[in-house]
Simulated scan of single mutants.
Amino acid sequence: MASAEVTTQTVRAGDGATVQVRFHRRPDDPSAPVLVCMPAMGTRAVSYTPLAEALVQAGFQVVLGELRGQGTSSVQVRRGVRYGYHEMVAYDCPALFRAVAAAFPGAPRHLLGHSLGGQLGALYLGQEPHMAAGAILVGAPSCHYRGWPFPQSLGMLAGFQLAAAFAAVYGYFPGRRLRVLGNDSAQILRDMATQVRTGRYHVPSSPVDFEPLLAAMDLPVLAVAIEGDPMAPPGGVRGLCDKLTSARVTYEELALGEGAPGGLHYGWIRDNAAFVDRVRAFVDRA
């Protein structure tokens, strides 16, 4: 069995924000493909350690990125701290991918984005597709409410508008207290609520209309929906795929075992054998 060499590096974004990024290397095969993991909303990078370990055993190298405001991020969520899609796509993603390129100069790189991390990673690669050989998007939907079946679609629409309004008044979104996702910036909620309502990745925090960039992204993409996942149903995952009109998209649905740890949206991180097999097959084809 291969053993990983695990190191940590401080990665500094263009606006000065920092995160501690974990590199899971294969000293025996430094040219092995690298998967750059971008977590779900409100989820710490360390949560993906079991997945990273399984991927190393399958022949990959893995980098665990950290979303702004979570885990090791120097940006702490509190009243008065504002960041949104703009800061994460324009500053954080470039810093992460450039650090990975410098650390693994001879290895192909693929985005491995979960949920919001998959959406943000796709927005970034729409601008700089040369930074990756492909993208793996897991439970990563367009959050347009029409991607959810009725009547959940109306709950999705109303819920995010209310959450954004509440966060604006409260100063941030106290997800841990509410037991809904994690704590996050009011601007993130505003950006997400806009995309939920309009279906477009043209959000208040960013001057960039990401829609034509997504359409022009010419990369192989594996999009995985978890069967029964209420946070990323097939309609939502396909909604993001439909924006990638120049990409070579492979869409698959993955069934997890009974009682998957962490629920369906997160259970594949530990119940990962079938997912790892699909990633191996996709990267071998890409």
Rank of each mutant, 00 (worst) to 15 (best):
C37K: 02
Y48L: 07
G155L: 14
R197G: 00
D284L: 14
V283T: 12
A90T: 12
P33K: 08
M38I: 15
G42N: 01
H130T: 10
F173N: 05
P204F: 07
G139R: 08
V279F: 06
W148D: 10
H144L: 08
L64S: 07
L157I: 01
A225G: 11
G69K: 09
A167W: 11
D15G: 06
I269F: 05
D191P: 05
Q57V: 05
R179D: 11
H202E: 10
Q195N: 14
P33G: 10
C93L: 13
P33L: 09
R146A: 14
E128V: 15
V249M: 03
Q76E: 12
A103S: 14
T250M: 02
Y124N: 00
A140K: 06
D277I: 00
L264V: 08
G263S: 10
D184V: 12
L125I: 01
E258I: 02
T194R: 13
L222S: 02
Q127H: 10
V180T: 13
G113S: 09
D277E: 15
L162P: 01
S246H: 11
Q57T: 12
P220W: 09
L137V: 09
A102L: 07
E211M: 13
R177F: 14
S3T: 15
A17G: 09
A17F: 09
D271E: 15
R176S: 10
S74A: 09
V62Q: 12
M131F: 01
A186M: 10
L256P: 09
D15L: 07
A58F: 05
L55W: 07
R98Q: 15
A135T: 01
A216V: 03
A40C: 12
S153I: 03
Y172H: 14
L157K: 15
T72D: 04
